[in-house]
Simulated scan of single mutants.
Amino acid sequence: MQIWHGLDHVPADLGATAVTLGNFDGVHRGHQAVLERMVSDAHDRGLMAVAVTFDPHPKAVHDPAHQPVLITGLADKLDRLAATGLDATLVVPYTLEFASQTPQEFVRRWLVDGLHASRLVVGTDTKFGRGNAGDVDTLRALGGAHGFAVDVVDDACAISESGRRWSSTWVRELLDDGKLVEAADVLGRPHRLRGTVVHGDKLGRQIGFPTANLEVTGGMIPRHGVYAGWLTVLEAGPSESATAVGAPMPAAISVGFNYTVGVEGLRIEGYVIDGAALDLYGAEVTFDLVQWRRPMLDFGSLDALIDGLASDVAWCRTVLQVD
């Protein structure tokens, strides 16, 4: 999938396209169903399938004092969008100036002149332009004037087996409750945290459980506690982590505060099972969280902490089916 950060990156020889718009936070199964249907229809018509998304999230610009909690960072969102078969995604740098455009200005500059839209795929509740003045009826009128068709997608393909509508709000609720298995069902994959491995307090190494401390750059922090999951090195740091790039490694992952040893601040750490010799400092990694085990606890002593961690690792082996 091609990624265009602004109209300046769109190829000059771009042909006719089918375009859809959205924030696509989490790229959950509802998003996937709509996007995959749009891609199939676009390709049947000989059109390039393009998504338009925004960075930062519009709420972060309009109300900076109350930053939105996003399920995925931009890098992972783009990876998930690519998996739907899209040919390209245009990442619009969202600013107050951008938001001040009228619906007519937005459609003409970005969709017609910028992306050569032949078809536009939108939801029934689509709003756009200054003050959210534009809606589906506005698009239909503008489509008639500029020569593009408007396909309005209903909710039929966005309803889960339980009858609840797939939504980013649902995912956030599940992550807050530590229901990672259920969240993975809505997302279509395990929830992911992405970041860089940084130096920690090195206590884990001293007690036999060396951990990779993650400085998170993307992904919603879920309920605090211990998780079974997978650690994957995306890009090696200055250490010896190059040998581990690309292969998911089973891990016991903790999210929260280390009460037993009184370490201050939130810690997100992954202990790679059977990977004691790994040196991951400076590497870009992901934590894919599979299942929640327990809350963070004060074990009262280092010996009790060590026993607790050993039990956690044994449980993670079972969950992840590691011999």
Rank of each mutant, 00 (worst) to 15 (best):
V290P: 03
A244C: 02
A310M: 07
Y227C: 04
G308C: 09
P248R: 04
A277S: 12
A251T: 06
E269T: 01
G270N: 01
G229D: 10
D274L: 05
D303I: 01
L309V: 15
A277R: 11
L305E: 03
L302T: 14
V233Y: 03
V233E: 10
F257L: 12
Y259P: 02
G308M: 05
G218Y: 00
D274M: 04
W230M: 08
V245D: 07
A276N: 13
E284S: 12
P248M: 08
N258C: 04
R293S: 15
A242G: 00
F209R: 00
E269Q: 03
G219E: 12
G265A: 07
P238C: 03
V233L: 03
M249T: 01
G256I: 13
S241D: 06
L289A: 01
T286E: 02
A244S: 07
D288N: 02
L305Y: 03
V290W: 06
T232H: 07
D279G: 08
D279F: 09
L302F: 10
T211I: 06
L234Q: 14
A276S: 10
T217S: 15
Y271P: 00
S301Q: 09
V216P: 00
L309A: 09
A283D: 11
F299P: 01
A251S: 14
Q291L: 10
T217Q: 14
T232K: 08
V261T: 11
S239F: 08
R223L: 15
P295T: 09
G218I: 00
G219L: 07
G265M: 12
V226R: 12
Y281A: 13
V263W: 05
F299A: 10
V216F: 00
F287P: 10
D288I: 05
S254D: 13
T260V: 01
T232F: 01
V216D: 06
L278D: 07
T260L: 06
V272Q: 04
L234R: 14
